[in-house]
Structures are given as C-alpha cells and as structure tokens.
C-alpha cells in the first residue's frame, strides 16, 4: 500500500479504535491477572468476607472501605476501573484482634472494588462491591 495522507489517516484511526475497544476488557483482565497471580488460579469461595463500601461515593478521591474476613491471614483489595488495579494488602499478625481493617481509597471512575482474602487453610475468598463515583458539577 502506498503511504498517502488518506491511507495514513485510515491506519491511524483504526489503531485508535482498536486501542479504545481494547481498553475496557484490558482493565478487567488486569484485575483478573492480578487476582490469578495472588491465588495461583485457585477457586474463589464467597460468603466469608464482608466488604463495606458506599454505593455512591461523593468524591472518588477519598472513598471509605472496610473489609472483614474472620479466619483470614491476609486481605488484598483491587479496584477494577483504576489504571493500576492493586490498592492494598493487609497481612494480619499474631496480635491482630480481628481480620478487619478500614482505609480510604481513590477510585478513578464508577467500578467494582474487589477483596480477596487468603484464609488460614490456604483457600481464597472473594467479595466485591460496585461503587458509583460522581463527577462534581462545581468542583470549584
């Protein structure tokens, strides 16, 4: 193909479209990849972990999150719509009284927050919560 201005435009816009289409699933799989890396692909149970997050966050800069997983050794948080899905990992030591912790996190957009708990028996538990992030009208 001869490289004309028109051809160049076609090629570049196709490239942009491909990137745009690729971006959403790419984010989701980034999170899946990160979870797989953590769990080694093990099956994820549900029900033993409680993830508390606001349904609607007033500001994505500071979203309060609480996790509680009795019997967990460690809990890792992911945010599947952030440029980097990993958020934090809590490892509980011998003097921890409960396998729970609260923190404040950044969410770039409306998305799922996912918590993966590694249990004492080596199994994994999962919980997720959808948080809607609003864009202020008058950020000021």
């Amino acid at each position: 193909m001869k490289l004309t201005r028109r051809n160049l435009l076609i090629i570049s816009s196709a490239g942009v479209a491909a990137t745009a289409m690729g971006s959403l699933p790419a984010f989701a799989s980034l999170t899946d990849d990160a979870i797989n890396e953590l769990t080694g692909g093990a099956a994820l149970g549900e029900g033993a972990i409680t993830l508390t997050a606001p349904e609607i966050a007033e500001n994505g800069n500071t979203v309060p999150i609480e996790v509680d997983a009795p019997g967990a050794v460690a809990i890792t948080l992911f945010a599947d719509g952030n440029p980097v899905p990993n958020v934090a990992t809590f490892k509980f030591g011998p003097l921890s009284a409960s396998r729970s912790a609260s923190t404040r996190i950044r969410l770039a957009t409306t998305q799922n927050v996912v918590a993966i708990a590694q249990m004492e028996d080596g199994s994994f538990q999962k919980a997720s919560a959808n948080v809607k992030v609003t864009i202020g009208g008058c950020g000021g």
Binding site: N61, T62, V63, A79, N82, V84, N86, V87, A88, T89, F90, K91, F92, G93, P94, L95, S96, A97, S98, S100, A101, S102, T103, R104, I105, R106, L107
Partner: peptide, 26 residues
Amino acid sequence: GQNVIDVTLEPAISTNPYFQFEAVVP
C-alpha cells in the same frame, strides 16, 4: 516486637493515608 498488621500500599490509597484496625494487648 510482635506484629499486629502489615500493610502494602499502592497509589490507589488516598492522600493522607488512614487505617483503622484492631489489636489484642496481652
């Protein structure tokens, strides 16, 4: 000298990082 909690933080933790957790004191 005994650990209560050990947290790994990524950039998604908010400005002025805040944590709340529970400990037992023997």
